Amino acid sequence: MSARSLPNLARQRVVVPAVIGRCKLDGDPIRTGEATVWLTDPMGLSHVECKQRADAATGGGA
């Protein structure tokens, strides 16, 4: 068996997207490429999922 036919069993590095900030609702890191929304209260960037979860918990919308 030649070296070309053997699979590469070495640990492969996975590129993790850069952190661009922290979610104002949960405090989790926001990475590039994630769906975000700008909030006015509290002022700042948040995940869309966190905003939807907060709206559902308070019964609010829009």
Rank of each mutant, 00 (worst) to 15 (best):
M43P: 12
L6T: 04
K51H: 15
L9M: 06
T32Q: 12
P29T: 01
A57H: 15
M43D: 15
C50F: 03
G44T: 05
K51I: 06
K51S: 12
T36Q: 07
R53L: 11
A35E: 06
P7W: 08
D41L: 09
G33M: 02
R4V: 10
A57R: 15
L9C: 06
D28A: 13
G33K: 01
G59L: 00
A54L: 05
E49G: 07
D55Y: 08
G60L: 12
G59K: 04
A35I: 01
K24P: 03
R11C: 07
L45C: 10
G21N: 08
G33D: 00
Q12P: 00
P7A: 13
T32N: 10
M43S: 15
T32E: 07
R13K: 13
C23F: 00
G44I: 04
T40F: 12
D26R: 09
P17D: 08
R22H: 10
V16E: 01
A54P: 04
T32V: 10
K24M: 09
G27S: 01
G21A: 13
A62Y: 11
A35L: 03
M1G: 14
R4A: 15
Q12G: 04
H47E: 00
L9H: 03
E34A: 09
G60H: 11
H47A: 00
V16G: 02
R4N: 13
P42R: 06
T40A: 13
D28M: 14
W38I: 11
T58G: 09
A62E: 14
L25Q: 02
R13D: 12
A3K: 09
S46P: 04
E34K: 05
C50R: 05
E34T: 09
T40N: 14
T40H: 14
M43W: 11
C23P: 02
V15K: 15
S2I: 12
D28N: 09
T36V: 13
M43N: 11
V15S: 13
P7V: 09
M43F: 12
S46R: 01
D55N: 11
A56W: 11
V48W: 07
S46G: 06
V48R: 15
P17L: 04
E34L: 06
I30W: 00
S5R: 02
I30H: 00
T32D: 03
E49R: 13
M43C: 11
